[in-house]
C-alpha cells in the first residue's frame, strides 16, 4: 500500500509539473484530489485496512494531499509568472496608435506663449479690428502726409474710400501700431498691454514676403519710463520664445512713431549666422523694431508727453516662428497646407 502511494505521488508531482496551463492543472486536481479522485478514493478505502496500517497510511495520505495542493498552487504561480496575453511575441517596432492629428497653428502657439509670458507680467491683451483707417494707421502715428514711410507699407485700401482721407479712408491695417493709440484713448495711462493680430501689405510675395502676416506688439506707458527698463519687453520675448541665449543686436532704427527708435536683429536660426536667403546673406534677421512712443503719438492718444513716456516693441510673429522652427518660406503660414501645419504639435 505504501509503495502504491509513493508511486502515486511520483506520478502526480510529475503530472503537475508538466501541466501547461491553469485548466489542465484543474483537471489534474480533480483527477487526484477531487471527490472521485485517486487520492480521495484511497482515503475512503482506509476503513478496510488494519488499525495500525490505517494510521500510518492515513497520515501519509493526508500529507500527500497537502503536498499535492501545494504542488498545484506552486505550479499555478509558476505558470502565471510565465503567462502572456499573446500566443506569439508581437512586433514591437509597429508604431503606436496616434492620439489626435489636430493642432493649433504654429503662429497661434507662439502668440499664446507670448500672451502667457506677458500675462504673468500683468499685461492686458487687446484686439483691434482688422479694417482700420488712414487716421489710425498713419495720421496718429506721426507719419507726416506724403512722408516716404507711408509708402514703405503698401496698404490695401478699401474700395470706395481710397480717395478719401483720415478716418474715412479705410484699409486693411498695414501694421498693429494704430491699435496702441485706440487702447490708450480708451484706457488712458499708465498702461501695459500687448496686441497681436494679422496685418496686410500690398506687395509682391516670395519666400520672405507675404501679403498677410502676423505681428505682435507690446507697449508700456508710465511716468518717466526709461529706455533701459523697456528692455524688459525684449528679454521677456526672447526668453519665452527660445528659452536659450540667442545672439541679438540692438541697433538704431527709424520708425516715425518712435523716438528714439531701434531695431533688434537676431542671429539667423536657419543658417546659424552663416548667411542664407532667409537673412539675405547677412546672418542677421530683423525681428523686433521698437522704441519710445513719439511725443506726437502720445498726444494723439490723449497723453501729455511731458508726463508719460513708454516703450514699444513690435514683433514680426511669422518671422519669429520661422526662426524658432527653421521654416524657410513665409507663405506656408497662410497656405492652410496640412502637410506643413501638422508638423507643429
Amino acid at each position: 500500500m505504501k509503495e502504491q502511494l509513493e508511486a502515486l505521488q511520483t506520478q502526480a508531482l510529475s503530472d503537475f509539473s508538466l501541466a501547461t496551463d491553469a485548466q489542465k492543472l484543474e483537471v489534474l486536481r480533480q483527477h487526484y484530489l477531487g471527490r472521485k479522485g485517486t487520492l480521495t478514493q484511497i482515503l475512503k478505502g482506509l476503513g478496510s485496512l488494519p488499525h495500525d496500517e490505517r494510521r500510518t497510511i492515513g497520515a501519509l495520505a493526508n500529507q500527500m494531499k497537502e503536498t499535492f495542493s501545494d504542488a498545484i498552487e506552486e505550479r499555478k504561480r509558476e505558470l502565471l509568472d510565465q503567462a502572456s496575453l499573446l500566443q506569439h511575441p508581437m512586433d514591437l517596432t509597429i508604431p503606436g496608435k496616434g492620439i489626435t492629428k489636430g493642432g493649433l497653428h504654429p503662429t497661434t502657439q507662439m502668440c499664446y506663449d507670448l500672451n502667457d509670458a506677458f500675462r504673468s507680467l500683468n499685461f492686458d491683451i487687446y484686439n483691434e479690428d482688422e479694417i482700420s483707417s488712414e487716421h489710425y494707421a498713419f495720421d496718429v502715428l506721426n507719419f507726416p502726409p506724403g512722408h516716404p514711410a507711408r509708402e514703405t507699407m503698401d496698404t490695401y485700401w478699401i474700395s470706395g474710400t481710397e480717395n478719401l482721407s483720415g478716418k474715412e479712408r479705410l484699409c486693411l491695417r498695414p501694421h498693429l501700431t494704430g491699435a496702441s493709440v485706440r487702447y490708450l484713448q480708451q484706457h488712458g495711462a499708465p498702461a501695459r498691454f500687448v496686441y497681436p493680430g494679422p496685418v496686410f501689405r500690398n506687395e509682391n510675395t516670395d519666400a520672405q514676403h507675404e501679403r498677410a502676416f502676423y505681428q505682435y506688439e507690446a507697449l508700456i506707458v508710465d511716468r518717466d519710463f526709461s529706455f533701459s527698463s523697456g528692455l524688459l519687453l525684449v528679454e521677456t520675448i526672447l526668453e519665452c520664445v527660445f528659452g536659450r541665449d540667442i545672439p541679438v543686436r540692438m541697433r538704431t532704427g527709424f520708425f516715425p512713431f518712435v523716438e528714439p527708435g531701434f531695431e533688434i536683429d537676431m542671429r539667423c536660426q536657419i543658417c546659424d549666422g552663416k548667411g542664407c536667403p532667409a537673412c539675405h546673406g547677412t546672418g542677421w534677421v530683423e525681428v523686433m523694431p521698437g522704441g519710445s512712443p513719439h511725443p506726437n503719438v502720445l498726444r494723439a492718444a490723449g497723453l501729455d508727453p511731458d508726463i508719460w513716456s513708454g516703450f514699444y516693441i513690435n514683433i514680426g510673429l511669422d518671422r519669429l516662428v520661422m526662426m524658432r522652427y527653421g521654416v524657410n518660406d513665409v507663405r506656408l503660414f497662410h497656405s492652410a497646407d496640412l502637410r506643413f501645419l501638422e508638423q507643429f504639435k
Partner: peptide, 23 residues
C-alpha cells in the same frame, strides 16, 4: 526726444543696461 536718440545711438543701444521698471 530727437536729441535723446542722438545720444542713445552714439552710446550704442547695446551698451544700455537693463533696469527693472518700477510699476
Amino acid at each position: 526726444d530727437d536729441i535723446l536718440e542722438e545720444v542713445c545711438r552714439m552710446i550704442g543701444y547695446h551698451h544700455i543696461k537693463y533696469q527693472p521698471p518700477v510699476i
